[in-house]
Simulated assay, not measured.
Amino acid sequence: MTRILTGQCRCRAVTYEAADEFAYAVNCHCSNCRRTTGSAFKPLAGIAIEKIKIAAGSENLMVYGDEPDNYLHCGKCGSLLYAVVKNGTYAHVTMGTLVDTPSIRPTHHVFVGSKAEWFEITDDLPQYDESD
């Protein structure tokens, strides 16, 4: 049986559920991810869109962008929960919003060519200047 993971925004006004069936996980260093998170990179996990849903607080969602691809934030605290990508077929879950620990771990770094100059990658994961 598939394990269901819970994720939440900072203020807990929005909760989502995702199957622990992520297809991939990466650390993204692109400038958009840095701006969205306010940190050096965004750990994200990709999952088929039918395997994730908002479980509570949908009235508090703020959707940024147009379909089929957009970003789901909490409208109260602003947390980025996940991005809908690949023409609406996948979600990129912001791993820091997961309450439960997923079985997947980031396997590499992407968009290292535009990473923050003040940040040094110190792990041994493969690095790609753009996406892999």
Rank of each mutant, 00 (worst) to 15 (best):
G65F: 05
E21T: 07
Y16M: 10
P106K: 03
L98K: 01
V99R: 03
C9T: 01
N70A: 07
P102K: 03
N87W: 00
K86Y: 11
R35G: 01
S58C: 05
V14G: 05
A91H: 00
F22M: 02
T6D: 14
A45R: 00
C28E: 09
M95H: 06
L98H: 03
A55H: 10
C11G: 10
A25Q: 05
S31I: 14
L81P: 14
F22K: 00
T6E: 15
T97S: 09
K115E: 07
L81Y: 08
Y71W: 09
T94W: 01
A40P: 10
L61E: 11
T37I: 12
R10V: 12
G78I: 11
D69R: 09
M62D: 12
A18P: 13
T15R: 09
V85C: 14
T107L: 12
Y16N: 11
N70V: 05
N32F: 15
D100K: 00
V63A: 04
G57I: 00
V84T: 15
E117C: 06
L80Q: 11
E17Y: 01
T97A: 07
T101M: 05
E67Y: 07
N32S: 15
E117L: 12
Y82S: 08
V99E: 06
T101C: 04
G96I: 06
N27E: 07
S39G: 15
S31A: 13
D69W: 02
A55I: 10
I54E: 01
S114V: 14
P43D: 04
Q8F: 01
P106W: 03
F111P: 00
P68R: 09
G38L: 03
C11H: 08
A56K: 15
P102A: 06
V85Y: 04
R34K: 08
G46H: 00
P102V: 05
L61D: 06
R105F: 12
Y24C: 11
N27D: 06
D66Q: 15
P106A: 04
A19T: 11
F41D: 11
C11S: 10
G75T: 02
G78Q: 10
P102L: 04
G65Y: 03
L44E: 14
I104H: 02
T37S: 14
C9H: 00
F22I: 00
C28S: 07
G78W: 05
E117I: 14
T97G: 08
E21N: 08
H92E: 13
R3C: 08
H73E: 07
I52D: 04
M95F: 08
G78H: 05
Y71I: 13
S39Q: 06
D69G: 06
V26W: 00
T97D: 04
S39L: 04
L5W: 02
G38H: 03
A55V: 11
L44Y: 11
T15E: 13
G57K: 00
G78M: 04
H109K: 07
G88C: 12
A116Q: 14
V112T: 15
N27C: 12
P102I: 09
R12P: 01
C9I: 04
P68C: 13
H29Y: 09
I4G: 00
Y24K: 12
C28L: 06
M62S: 13
G46T: 02
A18R: 06
P43C: 05
A55D: 14
